[in-house]
Design a protein around this nucleic acid. Sequence first.
DNA 1: CAGCATCCTACTAGATACTG
DNA 2: CAGTATCTAGTAGGATGCTG
Lengths: 109, 109
Amino acid sequence: MGNQQFKTAVELTLKVIGGKWKPVILCHLTDGAKRFSQLRRDMPGITQKMLTQQLRELEEDGIIHRKVYSQVPPKVEYSFTEYGLTVRQLLDEMADWGTQHQQHLNQVE
Amino acid sequence: MGNQQFKTAVELTLKVIGGKWKPVILCHLTDGAKRFSQLRRDMPGITQKMLTQQLRELEEDGIIHRKVYSQVPPKVEYSFTEYGLTVRQLLDEMADWGTQHQQHLNQVE
DNA sequence: CAGCATCCTACTAGATACTG
DNA sequence: CAGTATCTAGTAGGATGCTG
């Protein structure tokens, strides 16, 4: 415990699915494949730059797949890769803890 | 899925145990209670300001307990609260995923 | 020893304009 | 539609000095 391996493993996980936007993006992709424009509509707070940036990182980490339809106007769809599905379990557990914590906070008040 | 409740729950979780330092601090506290100075030694990269700040936030969120010994020189020990132990499970799972992901990355190379 | 206060920097994120 | 490029603003985090 308290060892280097454990610590860096957690840090790696947070690097891949942590941060301000990635969890939110991944949540919206649990519905299935979505277009870039649809994701923008789903997340009014995010800028197009941030959305692009975060999607690219998730793609590079092998979590999501970017499917480009060669047509005009352009159409790009994002979806979980098979490998990416392994983080959904983790996201669920993080959501569970968050929900319980919210109730915990309500009790304290 | 993709709903507001799920999304905010994950965000709440990351607010409590996410970020650059909190996971690391919590890892080091899995050994048991530790003094402030011990934690500093365990984490050469962290500044005293950051350590104090993050410990305070973890304390406010009920994850850790701050025990002050009224003596000179001062002695302060930090440890998991009973409630805080619920995040250890989650940290373990995050570490598991991170470890698997590391192996996944090695295979790709 | 365990901090607080202050100042400062570097990076993250947002705004805006433009393009295949 | 789905981006890229550039510039700016905000904030997380760091350095330093002081104190009960």
